[in-house]
Design a binder for these strands. Structure first.
Lengths: 157, 157
DNA sequence: ATTTACGGTACTGATTTGGTCCGATATGGT
DNA sequence: ACCATATCGGACCAAATCAGTACCGTAAAT
């Protein structure tokens, strides 16, 4: 089905909530669980991962919680997926050499790299800020924004 | 890791071999297994699936085998993935309604559709003919081709 | 009739996913 | 000092999916 994992989806939804909250807002796992109706353990798990990936900053102790490290428009979906799922590679062998003993005579390799790049760019073109925007009237506008945004041609992954 | 399944990859490699063979060539599962060094049962399984998906045509009996139904340049990677993995939807809830009880108030929904479309288009822009082209000098040319190709804006999936 | 090959289905072992739980540590409040 | 509230960092587990195999039936060629 070519899908990202449910957990990654949760992570993105959580980040989107941070993005929608007032700037630099600090939110605890418990609050996020309440807001999303997701079970607390999973929320906690994902926030931990996002923190260790450097997308969130954690504040321990009572009154602790998490907070976005960067502004929502500076965080792309590609980054998030990379943080939670590893490199964006549609198939194993394109993440690096040594995954397939036939890679020398594989004709399919180069087109796959091209496809991977395209997918990556598609994900890199959407930021957390886009995800945080309320749905509805601005939907079409979102497309314009994405199309118009400068796309500084990412190297890969 | 955002990947397609290994089996799907096999399927694509097999199709690429058909595309590289002389036009309308007919190949048996055994031949394909030999050519790819993949185990016969796997090859057989995938060819069956590709046939029932309508991408290959099967010829039964002794001297039987498979054959491409369409010309390689008329078969896109998007189609193949669709046939083998189902709809191209990065997350469950974007394949259709009824997958998430929060879809009414989900702000993330529309951007995801946009992302899905972009991924789909990236896959639709590469054809079997592209995959069959020998690697090497024509690599960069491939990019040009893909960019120049008319892209009749697929509805979705 | 025999051989070759596809068609379909069911099965199994391995891996991944989705989710839980717990002990340790850090901080704020009383 | 003590306790309540958080995160931290694991281990852990059940369920689903994946990858691969096996088997039996049917169709065609010789």
């Amino acid at each position: 089905m070519l899908r990202i994992s449910k957990l990654t989806d949760y992570g993105i939804v959580l980040l989107a909530r941070f993005a929608a909250a007032p700037r630099d807002a600090q939110l605890s796992a418990r609050e996020m669980a309440g807001a999303t109706t997701l079970p607390l353990p999973v929320v906690s798990k994902m926030l931990k991962e996002l923190a260790s990936a450097g997308l969130l900053e954690s504040l321990r102790g009572a009154k602790g919680g998490y907070r976005l490290v960067r502004t929502p428009d500076a965080i792309t979906v590609a980054e998030i997926v990379l943080a939670l799922e590893g490199p964006i590679a549609l198939m194993e062998c394109t993440v690096g050499p040594g995954h397939c003993e036939q890679e020398a005579r594989c004709t399919v390799q180069e087109p796959w790299h091209r496809i991977n790049r395209a997918v990556h760019d598609a994900l890199a073109r959407v930021t957390l800020a886009d995800l945080a925007r309320p749905a509805g009237g601005t939907a079409l506008l979102g497309i314009q924004n994405a199309a118009a945004r400068a796309t500084p041609s990412h190297p890969n992954n």
